[in-house]
Design a protein around this nucleic acid. Structure first.
Lengths: 240, 240
DNA sequence: AACCCCGTTCCTTTATCCGGAACGTCGTTC
DNA sequence: GAACGACGTTCCGGATAAAGGAACGGGGTT
């Protein structure tokens, strides 16, 4: 295993615990001998990827924030989309996500938490499969044949069983929106609208998601035009 | 030179250009033979640190966004401080920064851009020296003797010449605020207030910065209580 | 068609990384 | 207060991954 991969795992551990972690714990979780973990962490501290607190524990370093911020700017999407998403979130009083396609999966590129206590947690950069959930199916409909085939291959049995056929995908492409209930998780309902370029490619999928009890069919129908409208607005803001 | 360091440099190049970069350019800037750069980038793409676009160019990957976001949460400061900073920025119509001490320098931990076209650029994670600028001097005043000595050693000649003596530092500690004009850059004025724990340690320095022409002495005096008040509020929000 | 610029692959040398073992240091227990 | 245990740190020879020169492929240009 390469150093880079190990470093990535260490960072993941540091971030997962959302708090300082001891050397031993890190070494354990990554599956490294203490001495190796020690050497690696020392180097990472030197490069600013990690920090060492006075009490000896390790945490994420400023360099990660720097990189993330810069990468955000490079992607650009977040800056353009978040104001619009925030407004939508206020209007519908639910959490709003934006997923972008990336190879044969999708990545969370922006998110605004809703006012509810029970709400989907937003974690930027999280990878989710195509084909699952409202935005998953929607992005699948716009994906290349190759990405679609790969995504299907990676799907688990349950997902594979309910895989949308060509007709359904064509319908989704025509409408530009999708809904899902209990696909990603039981109790979770989502309404998703495509953010399209002028040429009809999908830049991303804008999604309102919340507890199913708060989002029955009629409420979804109410929300749908708002989601579709905001998605169009984001597309415009991106110059598409 | 270690792989990790090279990877960090590659990421910096990817972020600096704020746009896709070609293999050759990256290899060049990092000072690596093409074949080595190629191998490294391939691995980074595999780990999600970089992405390859259809046209063959490389960009930052989603993993960086993920890490940055998580590191932000881990630090916690930004979440607590930004709403207060946004309000302050609205009130004073200038850019607002928050710097935290880290070893013998300071790091930009949060920022809200002001409405002006001519305004200091905010780049999270940027490292600045102690002792220079309003927040630099302020944080220097609260720094440990060791950090102070190290910072002084690293200072350039001009900075060294105007290095604050013990008396000045004591004054800054007593007041809890500082101003600077043309210290970091000519034409740039800043007013900074310390964010303190209950025990009197500095968690950070809150700074309003803008063009000197918009911030003459009397305007600074006007702004000062607002900055100090917001800094106190952030301290309270952080549970200090 | 010939050329050139880039990216890609290959392969051996080399330098880096690995991790067990031994050591220090602090806090805990008897 | 001595012995123990947990945890971090240092060291060093062997294992391994990284390096980069060289040769190849392919798309665009003169």
């Amino acid at each position: 295993m390469s150093v880079l991969e190990k470093a990535a795992q260490v960072i993941d551990v540091l971030n997962r615990n959302l708090g300082p972690a001891k050397l031993g714990v890190i070494a354990d979780e990554v599956g490294l001998p203490k001495s190796s973990a020690h050497r690696l962490l020392n180097e990472m501290v030197g490069l600013g990827m990690a920090r060492r607190l006075e009490d000896g524990n390790y945490t994420s370093g400023y360099r990660l924030v720097q990189w993330g911020h810069a990468a955000d700017l490079a992607l650009g999407i977040r800056q353009a989309a978040e104001p619009i998403m925030r407004r939508l979130s206020d209007e519908v009083a639910e959490s709003v996500h934006l997923h972008v396609p990336e190879g044969n999966h999708r990545v969370c590129a922006a998110g605004v938490p809703g006012p509810q206590t029970l709400r989907p947690v937003i974690r930027l950069g999280t990878i989710l499969p195509l084909g699952v959930g409202a935005s998953g199916k929607l992005l699948l409909a716009y994906a290349t044949d190759r990405a679609r085939a790969e995504a299907r291959q990676q799907a688990d049995d349950a997902t594979e069983a309910s895989w949308p056929d060509e007709g359904q995908l064509a319908l989704l492409r025509e409408r530009g929106w999708a809904t899902s209930t209990a696909e990603v998780e039981s109790g979770l309902t989502a309404i998703s609208a495509a953010v399209l370029t002028r040429t009809g490619e999908a830049l991303g999928a804008l999604t309102v998601a919340g507890a199913s009890s708060r989002l029955p069919a009629e409420r979804c129908a109410e929300l749908r035009p708002l989601v579709v409208g905001s998605a169009r607005e984001i597309a415009r803001a991106l110059g598409a």
